[in-house]
Nucleic acid binder design. Sequence first.
DNA 1: CGAATGACGAAATTCTAAATTCGTCATTCG
DNA 2: CGAATGACGAATTTAGAATTTCGTCATTCG
Lengths: 200, 200
Amino acid sequence: MDETSDSLDTVRQDNIARILEAAERLFRHYGYAKTNVADIARDLGMSPANIYRFFASKTEIHQAICGRMLAGSYQQAYEISRLPVSAADRLRRYLQAEHQLILTAMLDHEKVHEMVIVAIERDWHVIEKHIDQMHELLEEIIRQGIAAGEFAEQDPAAAARSFGAATVVMCHPQLVAQCLSKPNRATPDEITEFAINALR
Amino acid sequence: MDETSDSLDTVRQDNIARILEAAERLFRHYGYAKTNVADIARDLGMSPANIYRFFASKTEIHQAICGRMLAGSYQQAYEISRLPVSAADRLRRYLQAEHQLILTAMLDHEKVHEMVIVAIERDWHVIEKHIDQMHELLEEIIRQGIAAGEFAEQDPAAAARSFGAATVVMCHPQLVAQCLSKPNRATPDEITEFAINALR
DNA sequence: CGAATGACGAAATTCTAAATTCGTCATTCG
DNA sequence: CGAATGACGAATTTAGAATTTCGTCATTCG
């Protein structure tokens, strides 16, 4: 019985993964709005109705894909946060990586950008959860930086929130898009050093 | 002849002012999109065609009104920048006033918010010019702060740009709207102190 | 008996024709 | 002669019909 319910779960997870894979590929190619569940089902050789055994709505698929993307971003950030370098350097790399991720996602595949924008406007929960996770990561780096004497004594949680707010121009897709070709703005490097300086 | 051309200019300026006054009142009441130039003309007892002797397009009226609003914001900021208090205090008041302005504009008259959002998406030039002016103001305050020994030795222009970028969450209408009811974000006060700290 | 489906109503989207609105220009008015 | 206007074409917006898409459910299939 254990084996049975396990394999059922496995099969279920597998179907979910296959659906997400196909959906993400189609969304990337045709855009979110122009891909319908019939397209996804056809791509997988199943009926549209069957999709709804695994996802309650098309929006839920969208949210799941956004969740995966954000998880990738978090994964990257997590690894950087564990690097054996100074706290300041980890913050530098964190911002650089995050910013780079957004830039390539926007320039390489324009459709992805569209998905994230929609997500920010609609799927608040996934985004909020991601921001919370990122704050946790920042908090830990800052705490270690304080312990190492790199940063001034301060509340790490509040500092992490402020650091996130101060660098939002580098991490918020809409803002990054708006500021891309503006000459009179601070460069990513300037902002990075400015925010790190605020912690000292 | 001087008198003639002067009075012509005066009359012209007067007409422009009257048009802007009427347009702003109607935009505030009915919203930008739902107000047409015929409405503005009727409100002033003139023909729609006459409006076009003073403005090349409806968009130009919109831009002019935005320009006036931003000029008001600049005026306020300019006065704060001249206050006989420490540079840090002037920056605090500057941010507080700017943020408050956006909050009241958004909550009191929702239509104004709509206009600014449209302006940010379309009328890039007015907005860019305003940002440049604000940067100049910040630069001067920071320069004085450096001279007074309040802030560390640094390039005031770069510092002003960074300060602006770091506090964008408090000054950018779209962001302010998005972050309004989010509990897990840095408070205006936290962000303010964080940004000022970065200058020391 | 559970996995899968075709058929179907509700909701959203697209399309198109009618109606506004923008902006121009020849003409009138003072 | 310049200020102002009514009339008009081009461009945009709106309303509502037609179509597509979403999501459900009774039924079939293995």
